[in-house]
């Protein structure tokens, strides 16, 4: 089952990226890295919000935890790159679980308010670390050891690293697809749609939500570590709440509980971002493009929620072998409709 809308839009996005590649290769590599980074983060939000219905407004905080864990381990202790990635995911997962334990029991708005506060808390903590320590406070964290340092040519090294990011993106995507298209996907959606009804059919909703937030945070931590090793420098003030909202826009535009849609949403938001940056050099508007772009993000959120809440690529039924059973048996079994009375009733 290939999703046609997603495929067509995907081809368009790939075409634009190819066009970029034709013009400037290193710029395109940068673009691909950002696509992979944001797509991982957006997919992790899709697990939390799209499937489980958890409103995590502190995504950027978990990304920051991952980035700084990887950064500190690499810069201060020389821990090898792959271990740093794993440690980043574990650290972010631990913070995620710590926050999830009290909050996922509560109503959505409590969770939303709590997570946004925690995201800011993490940033402020990082800002206030001593500037003379490895954390660097407001001056930022320096000295992250570049990955793939056995490749001497920096250009080739960048290609290798961006390639790795893309591989990790595919890993995340497949993970989400597996989860989403399994009985687990159904349980998560049932919690999202009606938690009490889900409990009434025996689902341990607390455990599912706790794990969704923990695993989502682990993926966000992984994205953060990728960010750290790409720039080899971290500054607390890049982890502003605006990043969280960018990720939310990606999920809302793309379509919640639809992984292909979320990736498409990511590509659209990133391309809008890049194109405005480019347009800045050619078109002179009485506006500051960066601010205008953020206004546009706000407007897009509102317009999509109002006029296309399902997103560009709407949610699909959970695909499991169960559908084959229905396809095979239903045509044979629906005999009660022929009796004439029908199963319909008036309200």
């Amino acid at each position: 089952m290939v999703d046609k809308t997603g495929l067509i839009l995907g081809i368009i996005v790939a075409g634009i990226i190819a066009a970029f590649a034709a013009v400037n290769v290193s710029y395109t590599l940068d673009l691909i890295f950002f696509l992979a980074f944001y797509a991982i983060a957006a997919l992790s939000l899709n697990l939390e919000y799209g499937y489980a219905g958890l409103s995590n407004f502190g995504k950027v905080g978990f990304i920051a935890v991952g980035a700084y864990t990887a950064g500190v381990l690499s810069a201060a202790y020389g821990v090898p790159f792959p271990l740093c990635l794993i440690a980043a995911a574990i650290a972010a997962a631990a913070v995620g679980a710590f926050i999830a334990i009290p909050t996922v029991k509560l109503r959505e708005d409590y969770l939303g308010m709590s997570t946004i506060i925690i995201g800011e808390m993490i940033r402020i903590l990082l800002r206030n670390t001593p500037t003379n320590s490895v954390w660097g406070g407001v001056f930022g964290l320096r000295g992250i050891k570049p990955p793939f340092d056995f490749i001497t040519n920096t250009f080739e090294r960048t290609i290798a690293y961006v390639g790795l990011s893309v591989v990790l993106f595919f890993f995340t995507y497949i993970l989400l697809e597996r989860w989403g298209n399994s009985p687990l996907g159904r349980v998560l959606k049932s919690i999202r749609d009606d938690e009490l009804a889900s409990k009434s059919i025996g689902k341990f909703t607390y455990r599912y939500k706790l794990l969704a937030l923990t695993l989502g945070s682990a993926l966000a931590g992984l994205a953060g570590a990728l960010y750290a090793f790409y720039f080899l420098y971290l500054n607390p003030d890049t982890f502003l709440p605006l990043v969280t909202f960018l990720i939310w826009v990606m999920v809302i535009i793309g379509g919640m509980a639809n992984n292909a849609g979320v990736v498409l949403g990511t590509a659209i938001v990133i391309l809008i971002n890049r194109l405005t940056q480019i347009a800045k050099d050619y078109i002179h508007l009485p506006l500051e493009p960066n601010y205008f772009q953020a206004m546009l993000v706000g407007l897009l959120i509102i317009l999509f929620l109002m006029f296309r809440p399902q997103g560009l690529v709407p949610e699909k039924p959970v695909r499991t072998p169960a559908w084959r059973v229905l396809e095979e048996r239903a045509p044979k079994e629906i005999d009660y409709l022929k009796e004439g009375e029908g199963g319909e009733e008036n309200e």
Binding site: Y49, G53, S55, F57, R107, E108, D109, G112, L242, F245, W248, I252, P286, L287, E288, Y291, F292, A294, M295, V297, G298, L299, L300, I301, I302, L305, M306, P309
Partner: peptide, 29 residues
């Protein structure tokens, strides 16, 4: 339109971003 609690919250974030960056735009202007 029957939006959920989370959707209303997200919409208010949209409003917040719009207002805030409109003010930034004003200071730039």
């Amino acid at each position: 339109r029957g939006a959920s609690l989370v959707q209303l919250m997200v919409a208010s974030i949209g409003v917040a971003l719009f207002i805030r960056y409109a003010l930034y735009e004003m200071t730039w202007y």
